Simulated scan of single mutants.
Amino acid sequence: MPFYVYAQDRPGAGSELLDLAEAHWAYMDRFADRLILRGPTLSDDGEEHTGSVHVIDLDERADAERFATEEPYWRAGLYRRFTAVRTSVLLDRGPAEGPLALVTGEWPPGPRAADMAAGDGTDGRVGYLGVLVDDEGARTTGIVAVVRAAPDEALRVVRPLADGMAAGPAALTARRWHRGGRR
């Protein structure tokens, strides 16, 4: 089952991240066949790494938490916190060109996850869409989307979809992002 794993950088971790980049890549190589989505979040100007996003297919929550806490950046204290949430992938169009934004949102357990589907009405700029679900996979608890747009525009693209999933206004955030992986 897929899990959305987001690790937020500790302030000032930039140069230390570079020092451990090869250890990070080697660790990620071990999971290459299970990584659905991966890449860093960036500052508004795109110059600084602010966190790491992974959607990874693992057996259970404990495996997702172990994936996060055994990661070299975490072990070195370069992340200040991580999130690991079960996810249902609704859409994955693969790599996209141009500026990308990661839009996330959370809400109290809401509509049944089984009722969610990405239909023809999904904006063509949405390259990845996942609904965050509770541990049983029964109720939605949030959203994660990658949109080919700047963060402000990405929020406008995802807002109607998220509000519909949340059955009301969803609290959303958007940040610059780019698809990761060994180059």
Rank of each mutant, 00 (worst) to 15 (best):
Q8R: 14
Q8S: 14
D9P: 01
D9E: 11
D9R: 00
R10W: 08
R10N: 08
R10I: 08
R10A: 15
P11D: 13
P11M: 09
P11L: 09
P11H: 04
G12T: 06
A13G: 07
A13P: 04
G14I: 06
G14F: 07
G14C: 05
S15V: 08
S15G: 06
E16W: 01
E16D: 14
E16C: 01
E16V: 01
L17N: 05
L17K: 12
L18W: 05
L18D: 15
D19V: 07
L20A: 09
L20I: 04
L20N: 05
L20C: 02
A21C: 06
A21F: 13
E22S: 14
E22L: 13
E22P: 00
E22G: 10
A23L: 10
A23E: 14
H24G: 04
H24C: 08
W25G: 10
W25L: 15
W25Y: 11
Y27D: 10
Y27F: 13
Y27E: 07
M28D: 11
M28N: 12
M28T: 11
M28E: 13
M28K: 08
M28W: 00
D29M: 08
R30D: 12
F31D: 03
F31R: 00
F31E: 07
F31S: 08
F31I: 04
F31H: 13
A32K: 10
A32V: 10
A32E: 13
A32M: 05
A32S: 12
D33G: 09
D33F: 02
R34P: 00
R34M: 03
L35G: 01
L35V: 11
L35W: 01
L35H: 02
I36V: 15
I36T: 11
I36M: 11
I36K: 05
I36Q: 11
I36D: 09
L37Q: 02
L37K: 00
R38L: 10
R38S: 13
R38M: 13
G39H: 04
P40N: 01
P40M: 06
T41K: 04
T41I: 01
T41C: 05
T41A: 07
L42R: 06
L42Y: 08
L42N: 02
D44Q: 10
D44L: 09
D45Q: 04
D45I: 02
D45M: 07
D45T: 02
G46E: 09
G46T: 06
G46R: 05
E47F: 06
E47T: 14
E48Q: 12
E48I: 08
T50R: 15
T50H: 09
T50W: 08
T50S: 07
G51S: 05
G51L: 07
G51Q: 07
G51I: 06
S52F: 12
S52R: 04
S52C: 10
S52K: 00
V53G: 05
H54K: 00
H54W: 11
I56A: 11
I56G: 02
D57L: 09
D57M: 09
D57C: 08
L58E: 04
D59Y: 06
D59K: 03
D59F: 05
D59A: 14
E60W: 02
E60P: 00
A62Y: 01
D63S: 12
D63A: 14
